[in-house]
Each structure stands twice: as structure tokens, then as C-alpha cells.
Design a protein around this nucleic acid. Structure first.
Length: 577
RNA sequence: GCGCCAGUAGCUCAGCCGGAUAGAGCAACGGCCUUCUAAGCCGUAGGUCAGAGGUUCGAGUCCUCUCUGGCGCGCCA
């Protein structure tokens, strides 16, 4: 067993199909949605009946003759028009759950065929402070990286910083006219923002200024030493600001290859696109054109402006090529705002036309973060909310609760708890939503320790850890799970234990589909099943020592599951809250 | 105008490649601290899956159309 039940059951069922019917077909193993039908069901017999003919129930009967479920399941039952219901054998569950308790990886082995995956995420623009618009990409990308990595894939997390575009022309222009060295020393990123705002407003108001900004950019890209030196300074300032945020979030990257990194490849990209007949001149610019029909219809992808400058599409092609040459990835995942989906469709079509069809290009698009009122998330006076301010607020909102509950704790400890809970709540709020649509950010909802929230999951873990500390006090030594089968007597114990065996499937699905909320849903289910167990089954006060140790082990297995899941999501863990 | 995404309980959302009687949480109502953290737990109630057709053994899920909302459509990223 690899710790993936669906995968294992699918493998065995597919094997049986091949032996009995001599066909390759998907047995369509799914969890049931009704306990009366067992734990899993094989649905694939019905489509098979249509394909090869015959009565589905009879086919199911024949399939069962060739189906070896080992000791995993009780004897399967055929139900309805031809479903096969599988019920996990309680002894098997007890044994596997015992192993979850004793294994640091909760019994989940690394995947047999690791892939190389490049994850492009966060990617803030230089010259601006990080704000809530950057949160989702950062959090979701980080979670995908960690989940893929836990599963054994080779992952390159790349921060594709916007450090070579139009904003530098604006910034340089503004610097030359409004530079304030003292302000830059005092509040570097604030000063950059001030300059950028000045420049961009001037450029918007006056076309001549806009031209001047473009000229500045051209001079920079042409390698003017003075401008390059300034550029380096600006980039460093932005990076320091971003790093401070990443440190608070615990996010890290393998590479920081910003757009400037690919600068020298851009001319070659355009040349190659033209040679291949993919791009051509149009209204003074150079663009890749697509068929009029379909999603890409009508609008071309611009790769060179009429003034000779390159665009982000050019840079994106160069970036993909670099990644393919350097890492030979199986997948390249772009965690970027869903509003750019047309751009990515065009980009991917272009890359495929260039012959890079061995790579799965994937745009993980996500919606906007809205306020609780459904309008864009803003400060009271309508300004952009910085990430720093958001994290600050999360901490400040939690702190009084901590101070009230743990008045004896030092202020440092109270702050530490408030940060872990507050930051965790913010992250979880983001991760637990399905990606595609906008979502409402509601402090009261996300900071609550009830419902599907970060604090609720942290709280479940805290209660387990507290029990384990108490065990140590009462027994005189820490509990060590020995991997023995559990004694699952109460319904609450069985349901919890069964749920714990599904972590591997949840992580697999989340990684395969790039949807971290699958992990959230799963962990919430675990925590929700832990509560009744905790309420109904005294752990340390169990009627006998054997049952006590079994329950402690079940608690340890639960903690392990939550720890691994939360760690993949990069939600902070804690001992008390 | 064309395209993308969404519409599921009062509210916020799940529903994995089409599977059996559509699930959670919040809010509402009723209970639970003398025992391991009550930032908690248990229970009750709540549905024309936007609407209309279609595909098939079977549709919240796939197709067509309509309505509503969000977003995107050549020299920004």
C-alpha cells in the first residue's frame, strides 16, 4: 500500500477487468456518498457493459470472480444497476490507522513516477509594495509547491518578478525630476511608490511624458550604465520589501528569475516566431495570429511593439523556453489571476506551435479577493490594502482573544500565538475557496474557530497535543506509537480512523488538479470527525490501558494527518491557543 | 459585438472523469463544562441545483438556447 486507497483499488479493479474481460477500462472507483453503500464503489461496469455488451449485473458478478482485494475489504456487493460496493475491512482499517500513527509520513510513500514541475507564482511587480492582489498567487503557489514536493515530485518554485517593464521607464523619469534621497533612505519602498505614482499620473496626463518614460525604458534596456545602477537599486529595495512579507508568510522560492533575466533572449524569440511563420508584422508591430474561430479568435498576441520594444508575451515565451532547456519539466504551472486566461491560452498555443508539446502548460487562474460586502477589498478611504497591513490586522484581531485566554503567557508568546492563528486564518481563507471565482474576505468568518477555518483546524491539533502532554504527565513518559493495530470500538473511532486513510488521495488530487482547497476540505473532514471522538471517547480516561493507548495512537494519527496536511498548505502549527 | 468564468439552503461555499435519496459551515431553534483546551461539542429545521429544451440505463455535472452577475478582448503586465 502506498497510502492511496483510490489508486490501489483502481489498480486492482483494472487488473481484474483486464483478466476477466480482456479490456483496458477505467473501473471508476469513487468514494460513496452514502455509508449504506460502503466506503468505495466501482462504477466502471456500467460503461463497460455498453462497450462490450452484456448485462451489467452479470458482468459485475464475473468481475468479482477475478477481483482480489486482499484483506482490504469485506466481500464486495453488487447493487443497483451494476455498482460494486466496497466496504473496508475494519481490521484492515485498524492496522493501517495504527501505521499512520507510527509513520512520520502517515504511511504515504512518494510517488513511483516523480515528475518535474515548475511553479511560477507570486511574481510581484517591482516598485510597488506587495498588496492583497499578490496574496492569492503567493499562498496558492506555495501550497502547490509544498504539496507536490511532499508527494515526491521535483519542483522548481520560481518568483517571476516583474522587473523589466514599463514601470521602470516611469520610475526613472520620476526619479530624475523628483528624487528625494532622504526619503529614499527613510522609507525606501514608500518613496518608490511615491515616485511611481507621480510618474504614472504625469504620463497619463501628458503624452509627451509617456514618450519620455518609454525613452527612459529603452535607454535602460539598451544598457545605459547610470540607469542600470538605479535599476539595481530599485530592484533591491523592492526585493527587500517582498522578502519581509515572504518571511512572515514562511514562503520561499528556488529561483528569482525576473523578466530581466530573459532580456537577452527576446530578440531571438521574435526572430524564431517569424521564421516559423507564426508571427508577422501588423500595424508596425509584430504579433502571433490565431484562427478566427475558437477561444483565441480574433485577437493576436503581440510580441514586439512598433517602437521595437518587447512585451510580456515575448518574455513569457523566452521564460518557458529557458525552463524547458534547463529543467525539462513535465508541467509548468502558472499561478496567475484568472483575468489573464486569454493571454495564457494564446501563450500556450504559441508554445505548442513552437513544438513544445511534451510539456503540460497549466494556468491556475484565481478570482479576486473582495471585501465582506462583495466589493473590491479596500481600505476605508478606498486605498489598496498592503499585505503587511492585512497580516498586521489579523494579528491584532486575534491578540485580545489570546490575552484573555492565556493571561499568564508572556507578551511574546501571546504575539506568537496571535500571528500563527491570524496568518494561518488568512492563508486558509484563501486556500479553502475554489479557485475560479472571486471570494469574499470576511474577517469574522475566517478568524472564527468554528466552521471550515484555519483556526478550527489548528484548534483540533492543539487539543490533541494537549492530551499528549497530559499523557506524559500522568504516565511519566512521552507516548510512542508502535504501529500496532488500533482497537476501534466506537463508531466515532471507526469513522475517524477511516477518514485518516484518505490523506494520500486528497494530496494526490490536489496536486494533480492544482486545487489546494481539496486538501482543506479533507482536513476539515478530519477535524470534524475528531470532535465527536474527542467528546464521546475519553482518551486518557479510557476503561482499560489497552484501549487508552489505542485512543492515544488514534489521536496521534489524527495529529500526524493534520500536521502533514497543514504543512503542505504552509499553515502554522502550534501547541496552545 | 465576440470570448471566458460563475449562478446549488436565508448567507458563504463544497460536490473529484456523468453514478444511487444533492452535502458542509454560518445564521436560527433546543441542549452540553465536576473529566484530556467551551476559540469547543451534540441535536433540529432548512432545496424547483437560475430557466427551457436535449443526450442516456442514469444529469447539479455533458450539449443548445435564454436570463442574471463578474471579467477579458493590439502595441500595460
Amino acid at each position: 500500500m502506498s497510502g492511496r486507497l483510490v489508486e490501489e483499488l483502481t489498480r486492482r479493479a483494472a487488473l481484474a477487468m483486464r483478466e476477466v474481460f480482456e479490456v483496458d477500462a477505467d473501473p471508476e472507483v469513487r468514494p460513496t456518498n452514502d455509508p449504506r453503500f460502503g466506503d468505495y464503489q466501482i462504477n466502471g461496469v456500467l460503461p463497460l457493459a455498453r462497450r462490450i455488451g452484456g448485462n451489467p449485473r452479470q458482468l459485475a458478478t464475473r468481475l468479482l470472480e477475478g477481483l482480489d482485494l486482499g484483506d482490504m475489504c469485506l466481500p464486495p456487493e453488487i447493487a443497483g444497476p451494476g455498482f460494486i460496493n466496497l466496504r473496508l475491512d475494519p481490521f484492515w482499517v485498524a492496522r493501517e490507522a495504527g501505521r499512520v500513527a507510527s509513520d512520520p509520513r502517515a504511511n504515504i510513500s512518494p510517488v513511483q513516477a516523480p515528475q518535474c514541475v515548475v511553479v511560477d507564482f507570486s511574481s510581484p511587480n517591482v516598485a510597488k509594495r506587495m498588496h492583497v492582489g499578490h496574496l492569492r498567487s503567493t499562498i496558492i503557489g506555495d501550497a502547490l509547491v509544498r504539496t507536490l514536493r511532499f508527494l515526491g515530485h521535483r519542483v522548481v518554485g520560481d518568483n517571476h518578478v516583474g522587473d523589466w517593464g514599463t514601470q521602470f521607464g516611469i520610475l526613472l523619469w520620476a526619479w530624475e525630476r523628483h528624487a528625494d534621497q532622504a526619503a529614499l533612505d527613510a522609507d525606501p519602498i514608500g518613496e518608490l511608490e511615491r515616485l511611481y505614482k507621480l510618474g504614472s499620473e504625469a504620463a497619463k496626463a501628458d503624452p509627451q511624458v509617456a514618450d519620455a518614460c518609454r525613452a527612459e525604458l529603452a535607454a535602460l534596456q539598451a544598457g545605459d550604465p547610470e540607469r542600470l545602477a538605479l535599476w539595481k537599486r530599485f530592484v533591491a529595495i523592492s526585493r527587500a520589501d517582498a522578502e519581509a512579507i515572504y518571511a512572515r508568510l514562511g514562503v520561499s522560492f528556488d529561483t528569482w528569475h525576473g523578466e530581466s533575466f530573459y532580456h537577452e533572449r527576446l530578440a531571438g524569440v521574435v526572430e524564431r516566431l517569424c521564421e516559423r511563420g507564426l508571427a508577422r508584422e501588423s500595424e508596425g508591430a509584430i504579433a502571433v495570429f490565431f484562427d478566427e474561430d475558437g477561444d483565441l479568435g480574433g485577437t493576436p498576441l503581440l510580441v514586439q511593439k512598433s517602437d521595437g520594444a518587447y512585451l510580456y508575451a515575448t518574455s513569457d515565451v523566452a521564460t518557458a523556453e529557458y525552463r524547458i532547456e534547463t529543467y525539462a519539466p513535465d508541467r509548468i504551472v502558472y499561478v496567475v489571476d484568472v483575468r489573464q486566461s486569454l493571454h495564457f491560452k494564446q501563450l500556450f498555443a504559441t508554445l505548442e506551435a513552437l513544438g513544445y508539446d511534451q510539456v503540460r502548460f497549466e494556468h491556475v487562474g484565481f478570482g479576486m479577493m473582495l471585501g465582506a460586502d462583495g466589493r473590491p477589498f479596500r481600505t476605508r478611504d478606498g486605498g489598496t490594502v498592503t499585505l503587511a497591513a492585512l497580516l498586521e490586522e489579523a494579528e491584532e484581531r486575534i491578540l485580545p482573544i489570546v490575552a484573555e485566554k492565556w493571561p499568564d503567557a508572556s507578551e511574546d508568546e501571546q504575539r506568537d500565538i496571535a500571528r500563527r492563528v491570524g496568518y494561518g486564518a488568512v492563508k486558509y481563507a484563501d486556500l479553502s475557496q475554489n479557485l475560479t471565482t472571486d471570494y469574499r474576505f470576511d474577517w469574522d468568518k475566517f478568524l472564527a474557530a468554528e466552521g471550515n477555518t484555519g483556526p478550527y483546524l489548528q484548534y483540533a491539533l492543539v487539543r490533541i497535543r494537549s492530551v499528549l502532554r497530559e499523557y506524559e504527565v500522568r504516565v511519566g513518559r512521552p507516548f510512542v506509537a508502535d504501529g500496532a493495530p488500533l482497537r476501534l470500538e466506537a463508531d466515532q473511532e471507526r469513522e475517524l480512523a477511516t477518514e485518516l486513510l484518505k490523506l494520500g488521495d486528497a494530496l494526490d488530487s490536489a496536486a494533480r488538479l492544482s486545487r489546494p482547497h481539496i486538501v482543506c476540505e479533507y482536513l476539515f473532514g478530519v477535524a470534524r470527525r475528531f470532535s465527536p471522538f474527542y467528546a464521546a471517547c475519553p482518551i486518557l480516561g479510557a476503561p482499560d490501558e489497552g484501549l487508552r493507548d489505542s485512543r492515544v495512537a488514534l489521536a496521534v494519527a489524527t495529529a500526524r494527518t493534520l500536521e502533514i496536511g497543514l504543512d503542505c498548505l504552509n499553515i502554522p502549527l502550534l501547541d496552545r491557543m
